[in-house]
């Protein structure tokens, strides 16, 4: 990396552009205070569909992934080169990984697990692009009171009138619109004049995995497909994993009750897989975002090691999601030997 002069020229050029903008156009971007929100903010509405930064980023991820897939496999050659080589290497690595986990069944699960890995990985890395989560708009919340004036969304009640400040804002520790706006409204509230309007910073791009809907969707698909594969492999017998009344009906009361109890535990654990999948990914990525934000406001160089850490976490989370899915699918498709207690290995 040190030997590549092009890279250094690019980095220096990027810094130069930043310095020039800061020196000569100090008001093109305004620094604002950060606000942390678990639920993603709405940027605009597409018909009746509210578009959030995470949805916007997901579209970018989608485009990038499909473009890469398209261009890397447009002309498949026996002797690979360029993008085809990259894609083949990735796929081969994934095959090796899933083969080691799912055994000979890997080919059946490959589409789902590999897609989960690639999608989660790209989603996580998109949140780490500089500017994602830190460049955005100011939005005045309190939607019941807004109306549109000259193309701007404004907040209005009997005493207060404020419009969305237009322009691009960057997160930073500086006196800002939101700060002053907050001070103003707090003073008003203290005087008993107005209820608190909600003004918030809305970034343009955010990691899709920091929106709980994305991990939830993947978790639902993962768990649902696990049941589908289990049924495909074992037929209706698969459901004896959760509802095993066989021994109870034969009159073996003691072991029959144990079987029923184990089945209930299995069922609960299966349902909670959705929750654990969702919150593992969402929690890690969202917490990573918050940590980077906090570190950035604490001290200038402090985010750097955490950035490296998040880079690692982003990969690990994608890896864990895909690997766990493969492992659960393997367990679901494995034949239950004898009484069917082998399925408990994943507890």
């Amino acid at each position: 990396m040190l030997k590549n002069p092009k890279l250094w020229i690019a980095i220096i050029a990027l810094f130069a552009v930043g310095v020039v903008i800061k020196l000569f156009f100090p008001f093109t971007t305004q620094a604002v205070r950060a606000s942390v929100a678990v639920a993603p903010e709405v940027i605009f509405e597409l018909g009746s569909f509210p578009v959030t930064p995470t949805i916007l980023t997901m579209v970018l991820v989608f485009i990038l992934l499909v473009a890469f897939a398209f261009f890397s496999t447009r002309k498949m050659e026996l002797v690979p080169s360029g993008m085809q080589n990259v894609m083949e290497t990735i796929i081969e690595q994934l095959i090796g990984l899933f083969e080691s986990i799912a055994g000979p069944m890997w080919a059946k699960f490959f589409s789902i697990t590999a897609t989960i890995f690639l999608l989660v990985l790209l989603s996580n890395y998109f949140g780490l692009i500089p500017g994602a989560g830190s460049i955005g708009f100011i939005k005045v919340g309190a939607e019941t009171h807004t109306d549109v004036q000259n193309g701007q969304v404004c907040f209005q009640n009997e005493t207060t009138h404020a419009c969305d400040p237009s322009g691009i804002f960057v997160l930073g520790d500086a006196p800002s619109f939101v700060e002053t706006y907050d001070l103003y409204t707090k003073a008003q509230i203290a005087k008993g004049i107005a209820e608190e309007p909600h003004a918030a910073f809305v970034p343009i791009l955010r990691a899709p995995s920091s929106d709980i809907n994305m991990p939830l969707a993947l978790a639902l698909i993962s768990v649902f497909m696990t049941q589908v594969y289990g049924m495909q492999k074992q037929g209706l017998k698969y459901w004896t994993r959760f509802f095993s009344f066989g021994r109870l009906l034969k009159g073996d009361i003691a072991f029959g009750l144990i079987d029923v109890f184990v089945g209930i535990v299995e069922l609960i654990s299966e349902i909670f897989k959705i929750v654990s999948f969702t919150f593992r990914l969402f929690g890690n990525i969202f917490a990573g975002e918050v940590i980077l934000l906090i570190m950035a406001f604490l001290f200038a160089i402090l985010p750097l090691p955490f950035y490296g850490l998040e880079f690692f976490v982003a990969f690990i989370q994608a890896f864990v999601f895909a690997v766990l899915t493969a492992a659960f699918m393997r367990i679901a498709t494995a034949e239950h030997g004898g009484g069917g207690h082998e399925g408990e290995a994943h507890h």
Binding site: F49, P50, L119, N213, I221
Partner: peptide
């Protein structure tokens, strides 16, 4: 922030990809 329309969008997105 769990929202049916966003969840559906993500599900469709995944299946499409």
């Amino acid at each position: 922030g769990v929202n049916v329309s966003w969840l559906l969008a993500q599900l469709i997105n995944f299946i499409l990809i």
